[in-house]
Design a protein around this nucleic acid. Sequence first.
DNA 1: GTATCTGCAAAACATTTGCCCTTTG
DNA 2: CAAAGGGCAAATGTTTTGCAGATAC
Lengths: 137, 137
Amino acid sequence: MARVKEIMTPLMERVLQVLSGSPVHLTAEEILKSINDVGRATVYRALDRLTEEGIIHRLSLEHGASVYEYVRKPHMHFRCSQCGKLYDIPGDAGEAIAVAMMQSGHRIERTDVISYGICFNCLNQTQNTKMEETKND
Amino acid sequence: MARVKEIMTPLMERVLQVLSGSPVHLTAEEILKSINDVGRATVYRALDRLTEEGIIHRLSLEHGASVYEYVRKPHMHFRCSQCGKLYDIPGDAGEAIAVAMMQSGHRIERTDVISYGICFNCLNQTQNTKMEETKND
DNA sequence: GTATCTGCAAAACATTTGCCCTTTG
DNA sequence: CAAAGGGCAAATGTTTTGCAGATAC
């Protein structure tokens, strides 16, 4: 951790504080808002460097901005195509993936697993909406 | 496949032809260039619909545009953080992921596995560069 | 004083939207 | 002619860049 500390700038520390204190994924814009008197570019620069150092994760998603999260235990992600909400899914990529990736000869630094579909919340709402529609017909 | 055919517009067919004929992932811009007399917006619309229908996959990556690929057999992806090249990695997400995702109660439609790191190509070049530098010091 | 960090504004991309024209049934 | 597809340009949203001032060593 000593080495990590060395490379940290004040802004990186502040960004990291915001991220590590948040239970949810945040976009660059959200982080920007929760820190006063900071330029947008600086936040992006800090996020880039924190990502490169492996201290945080950047998640690139369909439609809209990337989100950042403080690296805790490994997990996967699920994104609802309907409401756009992002869920953490416990568990990690597992041996199978690691082995396949290793055999490729590349140096793997991290693996993102992202599923897309309809979340349980939207599934229920759709059901309700359908019932309403039927009633009104 | 009958149902699929019904919803295909001429543009969707042309886009699909380009994608299914390409061994590599293409960005919207690349697809645009390989089709004459087509508006940018139309290509995006076609790609959106093809993606929704599950006929092609959109892959959202760090830095730069999303790439599209024709859906053949399931596989994973590796992106080199240095040269930006995207590699296909044989194998799929496996049971472990599917089960974990299912338990979440969401309706999973697809899962992307993307690893980031340094590709074997860049690993070699870096080695060579280092040797050169040593020579010149 | 040189390198690093930061803020600001502009630039650069990637993607989406609105509007209008064309085609098809 | 209504509905759907498509072209174009402008708008939007996200991220990056260039530059100048401030700070740290």
